[in-house]
Design a binder for these strands. Structure first.
Lengths: 354, 354
DNA sequence: CGGAGCACGTTATACGTAACACTTCACGAG
DNA sequence: CTCGTGAAGTGTTACGTATAACGTGCTCCG
């Protein structure tokens, strides 16, 4: 049986403290040096404490014209990579008094309603990862809040800043590792998601392999799930000649690939090597543990938020952003070698091939 | 070089359309039947479209006194269970034009700054899962927005509604399954997180086992990670007598338990059975696939949001909520039997025990 | 023929905060 | 004595929206 009394306003505090509302605002925002006497300031603070006063965020947002809130656009948080990304942005945001809201995309990559229209939260800026087209379309319709892109081709978007992971280098490290072990026949278990980051994987893989004088690896597309990875890997492993290593776009696909191999009676890594991407917690839960490329997802999210904050600062400081704002940061990635890769089997399973 | 013009207001639309600002508001909110002529209504819509007008959410929130935003309090989204929970709340919220913001808890369970004070988003309600103490403390200090608890003891909290998963029944199903297979010596790999949901697991496990006339299973605590689960499982499996089944509080712990068993030269499930909890995507990525209790996390999140919406509706409708609002919903859970459980080995490894 | 109602609008106000423009007073310099 | 100056405040306004309150004409019906 709560009394449901309305929340106290700054005017209520003023009445209790015996000052004006303006003084309350000044004191509670620590802008009172030389404007309010220390005694009254203390009275204001006491009154605020007594009433349990909290400034109304809606009123403040309206008055200031900004909300200290950023929007993060990601496909789905159930993918651990994006959960980490979010953790990074949220951490940096919290350090600067910012909040983060998520683009309300219920099922996977499906487009949501309207992130800016009826959405209750106004936004100071946007951080978008992947599926940029959808977000950009909505943005161009709206009032142009600053945009930071994650893992996106810098030229294709008019973002104020871009933060990328060095995916291509990661894939090159994978190839170098496998070729160094003696593998010559690779196969690519590719994500069939239309996203720049996966295009880069495919190009870097093909490029590296060709540069080493090997045949370009065939690719099989799969949705980003264990089950679909297994399906694609079964296809890859029953091809002729059979590849000795499966390069997967993602740890989930790699997990499926491991299952597929065992289902076909092949051992990992003795008969076939498997590599992943992302270094999810899944990678060390499997046996053998996955050789995979560790992506600093949290750091990427943090960098994205920092970039956005920098853009907002510059925007409020100067009138127009200077000539070179389209800054692109690229974060390094590292190959983590674990148990799922080993030299290829000595005897080529079938000497008939080529 | 964006011109950075201020966003158009409803007054701008009114000027262009040749009507008053009030008429714009009426038309755009579809409240104009019998108040504005169809012709002018169309003019207003055209002007709004032309100017790219979008109502200022901050002003609307201030005027209406509500924000159509709910707060979700969870430990960490990197745990897939909570990511699913979030997906459920976000989906239902989006269906009703609500947004969901997350309690900004950067590192795991650490308390965050101040979810209601300087947080830019005002909140119509709160949905909190686990670690209720922290959230409740902050809540009592604030202006008492309605609270829905997830997976929490209904009596201990003064929530407007509670949505629980039938964890106890899930654990009973696990025990029945294992006892039915012939297991008599279980061990409990317990999460050392102070949360009601884990207390329930422990009590239900001990109770079920005792009810069947077996010795109560020893428990080993572990943080909710694969690595720590492995550590605890190694301890459990080197005890004398060695348990024939490991009941884990969580799929991550179960994954660690499987790794521990193999490291000790034991096969899963031939030598030792392992069960999990949650049915994360990890459960089917492992080999053998995990026998685990499927928790309808997304449904729980959805139910929580629906409960919150119901509370808000009741609150705005009547003046005071009626006598019996503290409703508790309990969602059923189901044991999913997969490959990680099997009958215990015929020959008790060491006949010395007991 | 005198309202009663309806269709069509406008005006005015309030939400709670922040910031600008004032006023008052005391005091020290010129 | 006058003027300037800084401290210590207060009064007022604006942010953009939603809605209650207030007119108009005009038709319809007793």
């Amino acid at each position: 049986m709560i009394t449901d009394r309305p929340r106290p306003t700054s005017r209520d505090v003023a009445r209790v403290a015996g000052v004006s509302q303006a003084a309350v605002s000044l004191v509670l925002r620590d802008k009172w040096r030389g404007r309010v006497s220390p005694g009254k300031a203390e009275a204001v603070r006491a009154a605020a404490r007594e009433l349990g006063y909290r400034p109304n965020p809606a009123a403040r947002n309206l008055r200031l014209g900004r909300t200290r809130t950023a929007l993060l656009v990601v496909p789905a948080l159930t993918n651990e990579f994006f959960a980490r990304l979010h953790a990074g942005t949220a951490r940096v945001a919290a350090e600067h008094g910012f909040g983060v809201v998520l683009y309300p995309s219920p099922e996977g990559v499906g487009p949501a309603r309207d992130p800016f229209g009826s959405a209750s939260a106004a936004l100071d800026g946007v951080i978008a990862s992947s599926m940029a087209a959808e977000a950009l379309a909505a943005l161009r319709a709206g009032g142009d809040p600053p945009l930071v892109m994650l893992d996106s081709e810098p030229e294709r978007t008019r973002a104020a800043a871009t933060v990328n992971l060095d995916i291509a280098d990661g894939m090159r490290q994978v190839v170098a590792h496998l070729l160094g072990l003696g593998h010559r026949r690779l196969a690519h278990i590719a994500a069939d998601v239309a996203s720049w980051t996966f295009e880069v994987r495919a190009k870097a893989l093909a490029g590296s392999v060709r540069a080493a004088g090997c045949e370009p690896p065939p690719a099989r597309a799969a949705a980003l799930t264990v089950a679909d990875g297994m399906r694609a890997a079964v296809e890859a492993l029953t091809a002729d000649p059979r590849p000795t290593a499966l390069v997967c776009d993602d740890d989930l696909l790699a997990a499926g690939a491991c299952k597929a191999a065992r289902r076909l009676g092949l051992r990992v890594p003795e008969d076939v090597s498997v590599t992943g991407f992302d270094d999810l917690s899944l990678a060390t839960a499997l046996e053998p543990e996955l050789t995979t490329v560790r992506l600093p997802a949290e750091e990427a999210g943090a960098a994205g938020m920092r970039a956005l904050l920098a853009v907002l600062d510059a925007e409020s400081g100067e009138n127009v952003t200077p000539g070179g704002p389209a800054e692109t940061t690229t974060l390094p990635v590292t190959l983590t070698v674990r148990g799922s890769t080993a030299p290829p089997p000595k005897t080529p399973a079938r000497p008939g091939g080529r």
